[in-house]
Design a protein around this nucleic acid. Structure first.
Lengths: 194, 194
DNA sequence: CGCCGAGTTGAACTGAATCAAGAAACGTGG
DNA sequence: CCACGTTTCTTGATTCAGTTCAACTCGGCG
């Protein structure tokens, strides 16, 4: 039982170590979930009611506009995932989250989370640090989209996260970089020849 | 004295009302600043040590890459402004913040802010809500950059924030939209004829 | 006045999208 | 284990949104 929640405890402690009693209460409300590749954590139009921690697996956040698919982010083992915008605003999500492989997740309900924020100053702090971390990720990506060419974005990603490039399909990678699969294919072609 | 800090109090209370004593302590550490058009709140390479509240005025966050100027955001009267990324990470800022007009600002030092976060649960909560709000802004812009054409982004901005279009120079607006001034000029030309 | 930065307009250019057609990889059932 | 269909990836040809560079207009201001 505790074994399943060991990794999420470590991940939280990296933000802000919890007191024994805080963790006791927190871990009681956690729920272990097993989902299969292709399943969805949330679909467009639904309101997000959970944050998930990925014990093992991978997910993709994307949205669809005019029938086209745009990848906002990937998450992997030992990371948190949620439709954060919807979780915060309580508005229907504009993003989908799909499982890229069979995964084991730990679910935290938003109701409990908010209660935990309110009850424990430490909880609130974790909430702040998560929000700040999410902000940093988004700003960095926005700046890259504005100021770099597709090729530069690919090169940067390759440097920061080379494993990602092996595990994710070209289609999804391209959509993450804000380009079409054909363009990414050409970029990689150039890169491999140098 | 209190008069100068009335608006920031209201702005904070909109996130989370403070107790009398909390506000007392908070307001003691506030500093009123008058700056002129063209002044900078922070330059690239400096570490951000303040959050500012704009009593009256306007600012622009931008960064420079290969000599080109990219506008991340504008802030106006009654809004907060800071190089948030640097404030959070304590890393040197990659953005500049310039004053677009003579402005009156209220400065909060990051040292005091962190102390305030630690001392008061309510303070920590405000910190979380600010971070969440900043996240939402960035995600929305990222999604727009990914999925909309320059023309759609202009139309959207015009709808959400028509005053902005009157007050900001074409050059800055274009850079905010991620295009060149020439392109924005052409877009506006089309729009005015319809 | 004359200058100067801001905005506009025009023409050529380019990075990436689109459309189309193959090639390779994948998994599913016989 | 192979054969098949399906999806993924690549390659080529064309198109297009937006850039770049250059010239011109306009309004403000010393």
């Amino acid at each position: 039982m505790t074994h399943d929640f060991l990794k999420i405890k470590q991940a939280i402690d990296r933000f802000q170590p919890l007191e024994e009693t805080e963790w006791e209460e927190f871990s009681e409300k956690l729920e272990l979930k097993k989902l299969k590749k292709g399943d969805f954590l949330i679909r467009e139009g639904q309101v997000e009611n959970h944050i998930y921690f990925i014990n093992k697996g991978a997910t993709r956040n994307f949205f669809i506009k005019d029938g086209k698919d745009y990848t906002v982010d990937f998450q992997f083992t030992d990371e948190f995932v949620t439709a954060y915008y919807s979780l915060i605003t309580r508005a229907p999500s504009s993003v989908f989250i799909e499982l890229l492989e069979d995964s084991q997740l730990v679910a935290i309900s938003v109701n409990f989370l908010n209660e935990f924020y309110t009850r424990y100053h430490n909880g609130e702090k974790i909430g702040r640090l998560i929000a700040e971390y999410q902000y940093v990720k988004r700003l960095r990506k926005e700046m890259d989209l504005l100021s770099l060419t597709a090729e530069e974005r690919y090169a940067g990603l390759m440097q920061r996260n080379p494993t990602l490039i092996q595990n994710i399909s070209i289609k999804h990678l391209a959509s993450y970089l804000g380009i079409q699969p054909e363009s990414l294919s050409r970029i990689r072609n150039l890169h491999s020849r140098t």
